[in-house]
């Protein structure tokens, strides 16, 4: 029994850390640009696939990881400037278009790589044993990286000029315009950050598990649930919520089976949206 408890605590923390990265990216771009990006999951999975392809073609795995994460950042900026910036005011159209982008990329991945998962080349290997619970170094790596990146994100937002401008734009768009912040530039930076966070999450996730086209929808669902639970646009809320959702996933996996994890996350989203719709978004509609 204690073993199971230890396992749930440890495994849940790892899952929570990964999803916290993905969700804080999702939250960031909504908070700043009011874009509800249903295509967020593709940054998560594209980074993983690109990393796998590069590493398999002989690039050093760490370098491959770096390149692929930066690539999804650039890809996100392209999607933003090419498509989303034009329809930003039309919130429903943003949902539809980003959904279509997500499905389009998923289809392309299915055509190229097939539906079966492929694993990310191991950046690290080995097992640590706590009592009877073995923990792979991959999981430890995932957790450590997640915590470090989240800490850096906090620092960036609160200590740097750009970070403060991002915060300012998210709190008051008109105000930011008035004090002469180049809001469009801020949006682009935020989009880049958002995708990079998802990309790091994707690489870490596929280290421990495997990359498959369907994982992008999973990432979206969990990120969405976390962000709704923690409050859209609030990064701190997302981090706390990520660990809550991480534990919900781990516990449902342990006791109910895999399909229940996503189902439970979805029910959380609906319940919160329905029963506490306003206020959650920080703005009255």
């Amino acid at each position: 029994m204690i073993d199971i408890a230890v396992r749930i605590i440890v495994y849940g923390a790892v899952v929570g850390g990964i999803w916290a990265l993905v969700a804080s990216g999702f939250s960031l771009i909504f908070g700043v640009a009011r874009i509800l990006n249903f295509a967020h999951g593709i940054f998560f999975i594209l980074a993983a696939y690109l990393g796998i392809v590069l590493a398999k073609s002989g690039v050093n795995p760490y370098l491959a990881t770096l390149i692929s994460i930066l690539f999804v950042g650039g890809f996100a900026v392209a999607i933003y400037t090419g498509l989303l910036a034009r329809i930003k005011e039309h919130e429903v159209m943003v949902i539809i278009v980003t959904l279509a982008i997500a499905l389009l990329v998923e289809q392309i991945l299915i055509i190229i790589f097939g539906e079966h998962g492929i694993s990310y080349p191991a950046l690290i290997s080995g097992v640590l044993r706590i009592g009877k619970t073995p923990i792979t170094y991959k999981r430890i790596l995932a957790f450590v990286v997640a915590v470090v990146v989240l800490a850096l994100l906090e620092l960036f937002i609160h200590k740097t000029r750009t970070g403060k401008m991002i915060m300012a734009s998210s709190q008051n768009y008109e105000g930011a315009l008035l004090v002469g912040i180049n809001v469009d530039r801020i949006f682009i930076i935020t989009m880049f950050l958002s995708a990079v966070l998802a990309g790091i999450g994707g690489v870490l996730y596929t280290q421990v598990f495997a990359a498959s086209p369907a994982a992008s929808l999973k990432a979206l669902i969990f990120a969405f649930a976390i962000v709704i639970l923690g409050g859209l646009g609030s990064i701190k809320g997302s981090i706390v919520a990520a660990f809550i959702i991480g534990y919900i996933i781990t516990i449902t996996n342990q006791f109910l089976g895999a399909q229940w994890a996503e189902f439970a996350a979805l029910l959380v989203i609906i319940a919160i949206l329905v029963f506490k719709p306003t206020g959650l978004f920080g703005v009255e509609e």
Binding site: L36, F38, E91, V92, I95, L99, I221, F224, Q259, W260, E262, F263, L266, L267, I269, I270, L273, V274, P277, T278, E285
Partner: peptide
């Protein structure tokens, strides 16, 4: 339940709903 929500919220909730029903097909297979 949902039409009390206005505009964007309504779209948002309804966008998530298909996923819930979709998953129910798998959960209660």
């Amino acid at each position: 339940i949902t039409l009390r929500l206005k505009g964007f919220y309504f779209s948002l909730v309804t966008a998530i709903l298909p996923l819930v029903f979709l998953k129910s097909v798998f959960v209660f297979s």
